[in-house]
Design a protein around this nucleic acid. Structure first.
Lengths: 212, 212
DNA sequence: AATGTAGTAAACCGTATCGGTCAAAGGAGG
DNA sequence: CCTCCTTTGACCGATACGGTTTACTACATT
């Protein structure tokens, strides 16, 4: 148990979110400890006190990111549902839950994936297993697609919805750079609402009449 | 006519794309002239020879970005078409044309919109008029929506497709950071293809039977 | 062959800023 | 008042930033 994890959870979150945000925005090399300190509203020496070096901080954040995203998808009720749209609903809500707590999580992880700094990239393959684990949880293999009209390609629908949420996320990231937690949370609420409406519309038009 | 515009077009493009990419990726302050020089495959003094200062280079790129995106939407045949999906097809193809030439264009412009460096942000309102001009061109006011079933909300369809392409763009940006022009071009081809397929599927299921 | 010109870059410069340190200060509990 | 843990303002050496100097091409002109 290091000193950091003895701190109050709120302060931990403050620091984790600040660091995650700056690493996500600028990548390892150009994420300066002074920027992180400012975002986390602590002083620079505090960061070094708890984490020793910038590299150690980075890997602590990386571990946290993987741990939390995997956790958020580990709740079993996703896998009980088989209906295509219902399953999407549930898993989206879970993911949103994680993102609400860590707004920069996805951006941080994709940035890590393309990180060029040698200190990071030389250890990258250590995390490949974790990435695999993640991908496994996101593939829905046994979804029931029998309810669709035959003019509809379920794979295309799935892909469209993934792109849609990707697009929404990217808009949130761009727009909400300097927003408060409340604004962000409201934005996610709106996103989920729009998503549910969208799904309803797709369902009415893509499912065979007898399943409505 | 400054020295830069006397260069061969290919070399100009090389420099513009390099600078646009680095500015888009890192923002003004953390976009280093040495990085830009490396990406553009010229030496650092060459940049200063043609543009004087980093700030002048930035605004040159900014002007170029606005000029080119507005141009790409200025081709008149968009506004002759009235059918919802046809109009989307045409405008998407045009935008893709611009993006094929300048892969970082959109990312650069959104990053400019949120640029925090004072040197930039204090002049930002000069460009608001241009942004308005842009938005005007992207709104399709007189589209024919009478062909839709009444279970379909055309606004929602429009929004969905915009998010879809936003999502696709963000994936391209992430995935293609270090790709060659050919790979990028192939990716855009694929995107247009998927877009056309998607539109076809939506049309068959969203339009009233008599319009198919 | 000499001269001029536009473009380029290796090597350099002064300075700002980076990661990281240190000594001293708070504050909670006894 | 002491102890322990946490925090910070001020500082440091090293790097690397924006920008310059100087010298070299390639080519056109005389």
């Amino acid at each position: 148990m290091n000193t950091f994890e003895n701190l109050e959870i709120e302060k931990q979150d403050q620091i984790i979110n600040g660091a995650m945000h700056v690493f996500a925005m600028h990548g390892y090399k150009k994420a300066y400890m002074s920027d992180i300190a400012e975002h986390a509203k602590v002083s620079k020496p505090t960061l070094f006190y708890h984490f020793g070096t910038k590299l150690d901080l980075y890997f602590y954040i990386l571990d946290t990111a993987y741990r939390e995203i995997i956790q958020s998808l580990d709740i079993s009720d996703i896998y009980e549902e088989k209906d295509f749209f219902e399953c999407l609903k549930v898993s989206t809500e879970h993911k949103m839950g994680a993102l609400r707590k860590r707004p920069s999580l996805m951006k941080f992880l994709t940035r890590f994936y393309f990180e060029e700094a040698v200190e990071i990239s030389e250890r990258k393959n250590q995390y490949l297993a974790k990435s695999e684990q993640l991908r496994g949880k996101l593939v829905f293999e046994e979804l029931d697609v029998s309810k669709f009209k035959d003019t509809v390609d379920p794979k295309m629908v799935m892909d469209m919805l993934l792109k849609w949420s990707e697009g929404y996320m990217s808009i949130v990231e761009k727009t909400m750079v300097n927003s408060s937690d409340e604004e962000l949370s409201a934005f996610y609420d709106q996103m989920i609402n729009e998503f549910l409406q969208l799904i309803e519309m797709l369902k009415t038009n893509f499912y065979l009449p007898e399943y409505l």
